[in-house]
Design a protein around this nucleic acid. Structure first.
Length: 866
DNA sequence: GTATTAGACAGGGGA
DNA sequence: TGTCTAATAC
C-alpha cells in the first residue's frame, strides 16, 4: 500500500521542495488508468477518494479541493458498486453546502441525485430520523421545529410561571444555556448540577426539564432535539440503532472541525459496526453509566481545563471507551485551521482527536492549494503556524508569487474606509470585476462605515449574511398561519398570529385563553373554540375570535381540495395579512410583500403543506440577487467557504481583531480561534490580500486609540509590503482635523512604518516576550490589551509545538524601550483628547491628565508640546 | 392599539 | 454614539 501522507514527512519543515514523495509518482501513474472521474485528481485527493474502508480523516486545507474529494468519493463508491445511493450517509452543516454537493454530484453522475435521501445537514437528517420514530420521543411525526424566537417565547412563559424575574434571568440566557447543553449532548438529568444551578438560583436544571416537557405537549422540537433525541433513541433502542448502522454502508462528514459533542456522539453511534443482538443489552447500559445524575463536579473543579468543555468531553471519552465494534467506513473531511465556530459549541478537539477516537484511522492531508498566489499562501501559513493546537499542514502552491500582501495603516476608521474605497475604484478602472472584490470585517458594526462610503461613491455593494429569509417577521407570520392549519396544537404559532393583523384580540384576551387552556389541558386553539361559546369575552373580541376560528376551519377543509400553494395564497389574502402590508406605507413594506410572494413560490418545490412545513425551518435560505456586479461586504465568519480575487481585510487592531471579548472569555483557545479567523480571511484571496489597521476607531461612540493587531507581527516580512494609506485626504481634510492630523500620521509612520518595522531575529526564544505592547498609542482601556498580549499564556510557544519553534522573517514593531522626550507636568496636546499635562512617564507611554477627557495613557508620539 | 421615551448595551450567527 | 427593546403614556 502506498502511503505518501506519512504525516511527519509532509509537515516537517525539512522537506523544502514541493515535489511529491515517491508514492505520489506511482499514484500518478495509476491515475492514468482509473475511471475518468478520477483523472483530474492529484495523488492525495485520489487517495482520499479511493481509501474506502475504515475510518479516514481528510485534512483539507483551504482551497485544496475538499468538495471535489467528497463528491468524487461518493461517485466512486457508487460506481464501484460498494453501496447504493440510499446507503450513503453524507452530512454537512449548512443547506448551502448540501445543495452544492447535490449539484456537483448531479453534474458528475449526469443525472439528478434524487436517490441520495441521506445527503443533507446534520439537522435535516436528524429530523428525518426523528420523524420516523417520533413516538419514542413522545412526539407525533408532524412535530414542529421551533426556532430561537419560539424557544425564547416559550421559555419566557415558563419563567413567568415560576415567577422568576425576567430582568435578572433573561429567557435568552436560559435559551443559550439549554442550547449549550444540547450541543454537548446533555439531557436534563445529565447536566452537571453546578451548571444547572447557575441560572435563577438553582432552578436552571428544573427549567430545562420543564421546557422539554412543554415541547412534547406542543408537539415541537428545537434544533438541538433533532440530534439529541436521535441519540437518546439510539441508546434506548439498540435494534433501531442497528438498523441504521446496517443501512449506512458509508458515512461522509463535511467540515468535521465544526462538529459539536452531540454531533460527534451521533456520528460515533452510527459509525460503529452493527452490534450483535447479544451485545446490545450491554452497550446501552455502558453508555449511560458515565453520567450519573449526581454529576461529577469534582472532576470539573479539579481540572484546570475550561469547565465548559468538561462534561461533554467526559461524555465523549466514555463513548469512545465503550467497546465499539470495528468502526465502519466513515470519512470525515475538515480543516482544523478553519475551525472558527467554537463559540457555537464546535469542538476542535473532535478533529484533533480523530485518530484516537477512531482507532486505525487513516489521515490524509491535502496541502496543494489551487486558489491563492505564493505570497498570500505564505502569509496565511505563517500566521496560522503560531497556533499550537493544530494537526499541522503546510499549504503549498504551484502558482507564481503574485503581489505581496499589503499592510496599510490609517489614522482612523474613516480614512480606512476612504482608502479602501479608492483602491476599489482603482481596481475597477483596471478592469477588475466588483464581484471579485470582498471586504471581510471582524464585527458587523465595521460594515457601516464602508456602506456610507460606498453610497457616497455610488459604488454598488451587497452585504452577505444578516437576517435569514425565514427569520423575517412577515415570513414567520405567514408560516405561523400555515402551522396552525397543519397542527392545531401549535400554541406558539397561534399566539403569534392571533392578533396579526390587528383583530382587537389583545394581551387580555390571550391571557384569558391561556388560563382556560391550562385549566383544561387543551391547546390554545381548542380553548378559543370553547371560549367563544361562553360570554366571558366582550362581544367585539368574541366576534373576531369566532371569525378567526371559522376561517381556520374553512382553510383546513380547503386543504383537502386545494393545492398547498393556492391555499397559502388564500390564507394570506383572507386573513387580511397581505392587506396589512399593502396598507403599510413604510419603506420596507413592498419588500415584505415580495418576500411573501417568494415564500408562496418556494412552496412549489414541496409536495404538500406538511412536507413544506417539515423542511421549511431547516431549509429556507435567503435568495441572492447575485447577478449584479457588486462589492461583497461580510464578516470573516460568513466568508468561510468563499473566494475572491481581491480581498480587503480592515480593522486588524488589538481588541477588535483579535477580539478582546474572545480573549477574555476563552483565553488562549480564543486567541487561537481568532488567529484561525485571520487565516480564513487571508486564504479567501486568490490574487490580492490587503490588510488595514487604523490608529483611532470609534467604539460605542467614543474615539479610542488602538494598537495594531499582534497578528500583523506574525506575518512573514518577505511576503508582506507595508504601504502608506492611500486615503490621501489626510492632507486635504474633509474637515475637522486640519494639518495636525497629518502630523500625527507622520508620528505614526516613524514609529511603525519605516524604521519600526524590521526583520525579526532568526531565533526568538520561548518566553522571551513578544514584541507586545508599545506599538502605536493606547488609552486606558488599552491597558487590558497590553497585559493580555504580554501574558505568557498568550504570547509564548511551548516547545512541543510541531511547527517551527522560531519563526524567521517576522515583522516586529519597534520595541518599547525608547525613552520619552517629555517630562513630568509638560503641557501637551492630543488630537482627540485635547490639552492636558503629563502625570506619569513609563518609557514612551505617558499618563496624561486631560483637561476635558480625564486621565488617559497615551504613547508619546501621539501628543505634541502645547 | 399606537406613539413615545427611557434604558441597556454594544462579537461571531447554522440548523 | 446609535440601535433595539420594553415599559409607559396617550
Amino acid at each position: 500500500m502506498i502511503r505518501m501522507t506519512e504525516p511527519s514527512k509532509i509537515t516537517s519543515q525539512s522537506v523544502p521542495d514541493h515535489q511529491p514523495a515517491a508514492g505520489g509518482i506511482a499514484a500518478r501513474a495509476r491515475a492514468s488508468v482509473g475511471p475518468k472521474y478520477l483523472s483530474g485528481l492529484n495523488p492525495e485527493q485520489r487517495e482520499a477518494v479511493e481509501t474506502l474502508d475504515g475510518p479516514v480523516l481528510v485534512l483539507a486545507g483551504a482551497g485544496t479541493g475538499k468538495t471535489r474529494v467528497l463528491t468524487t468519493r461518493i461517485a466512486h463508491i457508487l460506481s464501484q458498486g460498494r453501496a447504493r445511493p440510499a446507503e450513503i450517509l453524507s452530512v454537512t452543516f449548512t443547506n448551502k453546502a448540501a445543495r452544492e454537493m447535490k449539484h456537483r454530484l448531479g453534474q458528475m453522475l449526469g443525472h439528478a441525485v434524487e436517490g441520495m435521501p441521506w445527503l443533507g445537514t446534520f439537522h435535516s437528517i436528524g429530523g428525518r430520523i426523528l420523524r420516523f420514530h417520533a413516538e419514542l420521543a413522545q412526539l407525533k411525526s408532524n412535530f414542529t421545529v421551533l426556532d430561537v424566537d419560539d424557544q425564547v417565547r416559550l421559555l419566557k412563559q415558563l419563567l413567568q410561571a415560576e415567577s422568576i424575574d425576567d430582568k435578572r434571568w433573561p429567557a435568552r440566557m436560559l435559551a443559550g444555556l439549554i442550547d449549550g447543553w444540547k450541543n454537548r449532548g446533555l439531557m436534563p438529568s445529565q447536566v452537571p448540577s453546578g451548571e444547572a444551578a447557575m441560572f435563577a438560583n438553582g432552578k436552571g436544571g428544573k427549567l430545562y426539564a420543564s421546557y422539554q416537557e412543554r415541547l412534547k405537549i406542543l408537539n415541537a422540537a428545537d434544533f438541538g432535539d433533532l440530534l439529541l433525541e436521535n441519540i437518546r433513541i439510539f441508546r434506548e433502542h439498540p435494534d433501531i440503532l442497528r438498523q441504521y448502522q446496517q443501512r449506512f454502508k458509508f458515512i461522509l462528514v463535511d467540515e468535521y472541525q465544526d462538529t459539536n459533542v452531540a454531533q460527534y456522539l451521533w456520528l460515533r453511534l452510527l459509525s460503529q459496526a452493527p452490534a450483535k443482538p447479544a451485545a446490545q443489552a450491554v452497550i446501552p447500559g455502558r453508555l449511560e453509566e458515565p453520567n450519573p445524575e449526581s454529576g461529577d463536579e469534582s472532576t470539573d473543579r479539579d481540572s484546570g481545563f475550561d469547565a465548559a468543555h468538561r462534561p461533554g468531553m467526559t461524555e465523549r471519552a466514555a463513548i469512545a471507551a465503550a467497546p465499539a465494534g470495528p468502526t465502519k467506513n466513515i470519512c470525515c473531511v475538515g480543516d482544523d485551521d478553519q475551525s472558527i465556530y467554537g463559540w457555537r459549541g464546535a469542538e476542535v478537539d473532535n478533529i484533533l482527536r480523530f485518530e484516537h477516537d477512531f482507532p486505525g484511522a487513516k489521515v490524509i492531508r491535502l496541502e496543494r492549494n489551487y486558489r491563492s498566489t505564493g505570497h498570500i499562501l505564505a502569509a496565511a501559513s505563517h500566521l496560522i503556524a503560531h497556533n499550537e493546537g493544530r494537526l499541522g499542514k503546510t499549504l503549498r502552491t504551484e502558482d507564481h508569487d503574485g503581489e505581496k500582501v499589503t499592510v496599510t495603516g490609517s489614522w482612523d476608521s474613516e480614512e480606512e474606509a476612504r482608502g479602501i474605497g479608492e483602491e476599489i475604484e482603482q481596481l475597477q478602472r483596471q478592469g477588475e470585476k466588483l464581484n471579485e472584490i470582498a471586504i471581510l470585517v471582524r464585527a458587523s458594526y465595521q460594515m457601516r462605515e464602508f456602506e456610507d462610503r460606498f453610497v457616497t461613491l455610488g459604488l454598488p455593494y451587497r452585504v452577505i449574511g444578516g437576517p435569514r429569509f425565514y427569520e423575517r417577521a412577515e415570513i414567520r407570520d405567514a408560516l405561523a398561519y400555515l402551522r396552525v392549519i397543519n397542527s392545531p396544537a401549535d400554541d406558539l404559532a397561534f399566539e403569534r398570529i392571533v392578533n396579526t393583523p390587528k383583530r382587537g384580540l389583545g394581551d387580555a384576551t390571550v391571557q384569558m385563553l391561556h388560563d382556560h387552556a391550562r385549566k383544561r389541558r387543551i391547546p390554545l386553539f381548542e380553548a378559543a373554540r370553547a371560549v367563544v361559546e361562553t360570554d366571558e369575552l366582550k362581544p367585539k373580541a368574541r366576534g373576531s375570535l369566532r371569525d378567526l376560528i371559522t376561517q381556520f376551519d374553512r382553510w383546513r377543509a380547503q386543504r383537502e381540495v386545494t393545492a398547498h400553494t393556492d391555499l397559502a395564497q388564500i390564507v394570506l389574502d383572507e386573513s387580511g395579512y397581505t392587506e396589512m402590508w399593502q396598507k403599510d406605507r413604510s419603506a420596507d413594506a413592498a419588500g415584505r410583500l415580495e418576500n411573501l410572494k417568494e415564500l408562496v413560490r418556494s412552496m412549489e418545490e414541496f409536495e404538500n403543506l406538511q412536507g413544506f412545513l417539515e423542511h421549511i425551518s431547516l431549509v429556507m435560505d435567503r435568495e441572492g440577487g447575485a447577478e449584479d456586479d457588486a462589492v461583497s461586504l461580510m464578516t470573516l465568519h460568513s466568508a468561510k467557504g468563499l473566494e475572491f480575487d481581491n480581498v480587503f481585510l480592515p480593522g486588524w487592531e488589538e481588541g477588535l481583531f483579535p477580539s478582546q471579548r474572545t480573549l477574555d472569555e476563552q483565553g488562549r483557545a480564543g486567541l487561537e480561534e481568532e488567529r484561525r479567523l485571520g487565516h480564513v480571511g487571508l486564504t479567501r484571496a486568490r490574487r490580492r490580500a490587503k490588510i488595514y489597521f487604523a490608529t483611532n476607531r470609534r467604539i460605542h461612540g467614543t474615539w479610542s486609540t488602538t494598537i495594531p493587531s499582534r497578528f500583523l507581527d506574525e506575518l512573514p516580512a518577505a511576503n508582506v509590503e507595508i504601504t502608506e494609506s492611500k486615503g490621501g485626504s489626510a492632507w486635504g481634510g474633509t474637515g475637522g482635523y486640519g494639518a495636525s492630523r497629518f502630523d500625527d500620521m507622520e508620528a505614526f509612520g516613524s514609529s511603525y512604518s519605516t524604521p519600526g518595522w524590521q526583520r525579526a531575529q532568526a531565533n526568538r526564544n520561548r518566553g522571551g516576550g513578544r514584541g507586545g505592547g508599545g506599538r502605536g498609542g493606547f488609552e486606558e482601556e488599552a491597558s487590558t490589551f497590553s497585559s493580555a498580549s504580554s501574558s505568557p499564556d498568550f504570547g509564548s510557544f511551548s516547545s512541543r509545538r510541531r511547527g517551527p519553534l522560531t519563526i524567521e522573517g517576522e515583522l516586529v514593531a519597534k520595541s518599547t524601550g525608547t525613552t520619552s522626550e517629555f517630562s513630568l507636568s509638560d503641557r501637551v496636546f492630543h488630537q482627540k483628547f485635547g490639552y492636558g499635562h503629563v502625570t506619569k512617564i513609563d518609557g514612551n507611554k505617558l499618563t496624561i491628565a486631560f483637561d476635558k477627557a480625564g486621565e488617559k495613557k497615551v504613547v508619546d508620539s501621539f501628543v505634541q508640546r502645547a
